[in-house]
Write a protein that binds this DNA or RNA. Structure first.
Length: 510
RNA sequence: GCCAGUGUAGUUCAACGGCUAGAACAAGGGACUCAUAAGCCCUGGAUAGAGGUUCGACUCCUCUCACUGGCACCA
């Protein structure tokens, strides 16, 4: 069986999950569910990044024991995944000494043995107010923009990773498409960055500065810096560096890393560099998503414009949020969300579009035929084709199977999730028009047989809509398939439908 | 500042240099009733600005303006 390994970035636990985390989880989940439906052996990994001075500081601010603190936040991320119906197979935490540390350390040792880790002085600007290194970007007139004080120039000994040695190989992997970066614009961004030349990258910090982290193998005076620690989660979770490397052998390399544009460089440069140094295969695809803005503004606590994903799920349901994140927001671009936009999209497409179509079709089938619809002859089906621009078009099954499905599959293969969703809704719209054309609700009084053919077509369409929706809106798809008397698993069961009407899928919100 | 990219209807998006610039939502109108006052049909409405190349430009070139991203150790 073909394997498929997909990951999300691991989320940093300095604060609770927000909509951006939800976006990434849902995108990855849709792909994972789709690949499972294709029959692949999917391993879907997500997790949390829990180390670093920042986490420690937040825990201290809240006067909490650091372990308790990260446990608490990690639990929030797990809860979000659960409430969003994320089908992850595993959840890795970088503070997990048993599951994560061995892999992170083993990779470090591998790089060290290769001679690609060396000690050197790291020079940086350290702001006492931030209690962290800051960059030139953070400076205004040479002073920290937040604390308005001059940073200290610190010169300390660190381990470095010889990233520069892999510059050409990384570049080749990207240009050749061996490591594919979606979208194109992000790829170009990385390639132009590569043109500038890669410097080696700092891979550790003195333990006195970062005590909350993984100690460097054979040198406890140093703690692994974030990239050495966090990126290795993708293989540590598979057992790399432990006695049981079965999963690692089976699933690596990743077929898709779903990441945000903010961490592209680390995944497109440092991570491939590490893998090349360790003699491991590179991931196949980096799917880079944008950020969610709220009313056109960046999410920020100080702006007070945060929208809580849990709140949306509570009020509209997980599938509604999944719908918005995958259809109303383009996978690779920034997307905007406001309560108003959400409600509008919910009413127009879930309550009115999908929900209403389902309701009217099920109701008619139940009322006119007691829910039992038997597949009509090909000739009978051909006699009630779809209409297009007032002219007869192809039959419903033909359009679904030969026009809609291939387009949908193509969009899914290309990871164009919002396009795939558009295709589903365009099918709904065509079928709504079909009802209007043939008016089965009138025709039932004069020609019951023909009405039966039309309704069979409508239910047939509904089964395919539900099937296409399964990766996106699993609960809704199941409800629909159950209402049609289909278990959703076998594909060859459209000869006979036993339909019963159900509660509205999505109630309108005023 | 430098390098990329974007700019199309009120809004979100689409258009290998080639038919009348397409959709969707929103707005206005109409005929219907199976359905969640949903659905269907019709209508109005746009290429940021200025030049240029071309038989022909949303598309290519130049400049201006606006916005976005990147310009390495913040995740």
């Amino acid at each position: 069986m073909e394997k498929f390994f997909i990951t999300t970035a691991i989320d940093y636990v300095n604060a609770s999950p927000h909509l951006g985390h939800a976006l990434e989880k849902v995108q990855a989940d849709v792909v994972a569910r789709y690949q499972r439906l294709l029959g692949k052996d999917v391993f879907f990994l997500t997790g949390t990044d829990e180390h670093g001075a920042k986490v420690k500081k937040v825990a201290e601010t809240q006067e909490k024991n650091i372990e308790e603190f990260v446990n608490e936040i990690a639990e929030n991320f797990k809860t979000l995944a659960k409430e969003l119906n994320i089908s992850n197979d595993d959840f890795i935490r970088t503070s997990d000494k048993i599951r994560h540390w061995p892999g992170a350390k083993a990779l470090w040792v591998k790089l060290a043995e290769k001679g690609d880790i060396y000690k050197a002085n790291y020079k940086g600007l350290y702001c006492l107010g931030c209690e962290a290194f800051i960059t030139k970007k953070d400076l205004i007139d040479g002073k920290c923009a937040i604390h308005n004080q001059k940073p200290e120039e610190i010169d300390e000994e660190n381990y470095f990773f010889r990233l520069s040695a892999y510059q050409n190989k990384i570049k080749k992997a990207i240009t050749s498409g061996k490591l594919k970066i979606i979208p194109e614009g992000r790829k170009n961004e990385i390639l132009s960055f590569l043109e500038l030349g890669l410097e080696d990258t700092s891979f550790s910090r003195p333990a006195k500065d970062i005590s909350w982290g993984i100690p460097v193998p054979l040198d406890v005076s140093q703690t692994m810096y974030v990239w050495a620690d966090a990126l290795s989660n993708y293989i540590s979770a598979l057992g790399y560096g432990t006695e049981n490397t079965e999963k690692f052998q089976k699933y690596w390399p990743a077929d898709v890393h779903v990441i945000g544009k903010d961490i592209l460089r680390f995944h497109a440069l440092i991570w491939p560099g590490m893998l090349l140094a360790a003699g491991l295969d590179l991931p196949k695809v980096l799917l880079v998503h944008g950020h969610i803005t709220l009313g056109g503004k960046k999410m920020s606590k100080s702006l007070g414009n945060v929208i809580d994903p849990f709140d949306i799920i509570r009020r509209y349901g997980a599938d509604a949020l999944r719908y918005y994140l995958t259809r109303e927001i383009s996978v690779t671009e920034d997307g905007d969300l406001t309560e108003e936009k959400f409600k509008k999209a919910y009413n127009a497409n879930l309550a009115n579009g999908l929900g209403n179509y389902t309701a009217r079709v099920l109701k008619m089938a139940e009322q006119y035929f007691g829910g039992a619809l038997i597949k009509p002859s090909e000739t009978a089906i051909a006699e009630v084709p779809l209409q297009k621009d007032g002219k007869e078009f192809f039959s419903v099954p033909y359009v679904i199977e030969n026009l809609v499905l291939p387009e949908y599959l193509k969009a899914m293969e290309n990871l164009e999730l919002n396009k795939a969703m558009d295709i589903i809704w365009s099918a709904i719209s065509q079928l709504d028009g079909y009802i209007q054309n043939y008016q089965p609700f009138k025709l039932i009084n004069t020609d019951k047989e023909k009405t039966g053919v039309i309704l069979w077509n409508l239910v047939f369409g509904l089964t395919h809509i539900a099937r296409m929706l399964r990766p996106f809106m699993p609960q809704t798809a199941e409800k629909i398939l159950n209402a049609i008397g289909i278990d959703g698993k076998s594909e060859e069961n459209s000869n006979e439908f036993h339909v019963k009407s159900i509660e509205p899928l999505f109630l309108r919100k005023e």
